[in-house]
């Protein structure tokens, strides 16, 4: 998994609430058995109209925001389907962090497993960042996970808190399966007892 330490880039505002994973990654991009081509799928139906023409008003189609590394998002971002394709697509587009007040549970976990930093911020910080990202000119941010801070190029600065375990895993790009497999003895012990208590289970 890609690690996250200190990243700088442009921030784009997507302020609507309840942006679901169908919108982040439409169904026509879910038919593969690998992870290829999902950057093209990210926000596809917001980026292109039914005739395949770019919608010039969508933020990620506007000059200066096309390669945004950060999305400042509305509440409950990533709700709906569990499709991890949504996270893979955002990463393939170069999105490194999502800044908002709340994220849907499965999506939030999917972000953590892929090195995409989803930061749950207090409303005042999220509002301030939404204003920064809304323009009129593209603004650059630096997100520092080592020091737990977000800063603008002109020196404004906000701090954030993040769960210690999640932060460690992101900082070190940790493989969570390998971590769990250090505990195979405990799993096997538990399983033996559990299966004795419930022998009818598969």
């Amino acid at each position: 998994m890609e690690s996250f330490t200190i990243v700088s880039g442009t921030a784009a505002a997507i302020p609507l609430p309840n942006i679901d994973t169908d919108v982040i990654m439409p169904k026509q991009f879910l038919k593969g058995i690998d992870r290829s081509g999902l950057g093209e799928g990210a926000f596809h139906d917001l980026r292109f109209d039914a005739g395949g023409r770019e919608r010039p008003d969508f933020i990620l189609n506007r000059p200066g925001w096309r390669d945004a590394a950060f999305l400042v998002v509305g509440p409950n971002f990533g709700c709906g389907s569990s499709r991890e394709h949504a996270v893979w697509g955002l990463k393939q587009r170069g999105v490194r962090a999502l800044l908002g007040t709340s994220f849907a549970g499965i999506f939030f976990d999917n972000c953590a497993r892929n090195g995409l930093l989803a930061l749950t911020l207090d409303p005042a910080t999220a509002d301030a960042l939404m204003e920064v990202a809304a323009g009129p000119e593209p603004a650059r941010l630096t997100v520092d996970l080592t020091g737990c801070s977000i800063a603008t190029a002109d020196g404004r600065r906000w701090s954030f808190t993040i769960d210690a375990g999640r932060r460690e895993a992101l900082l070190h790009g940790r493989d969570h399966i390998a971590t769990t497999l250090t505990r195979t003895g405990a799993i096997a012990d538990f399983e033996a007892g559990h299966r004795m208590r419930t022998p009818w289970l598969p």
Binding site: S82, R83, E84, V87, I106, F107, D109, N110, R113, N114, H176, I177, T180, L181, T184, I187
Partner: peptide, 13 residues
């Protein structure tokens, strides 16, 4: 519900 990374985790562990 879980994502695909967790599907792999459950398969393996």
């Amino acid at each position: 519900g879980i994502g695909t990374s967790e599907v792999e985790h459950v398969l393996a562990t």
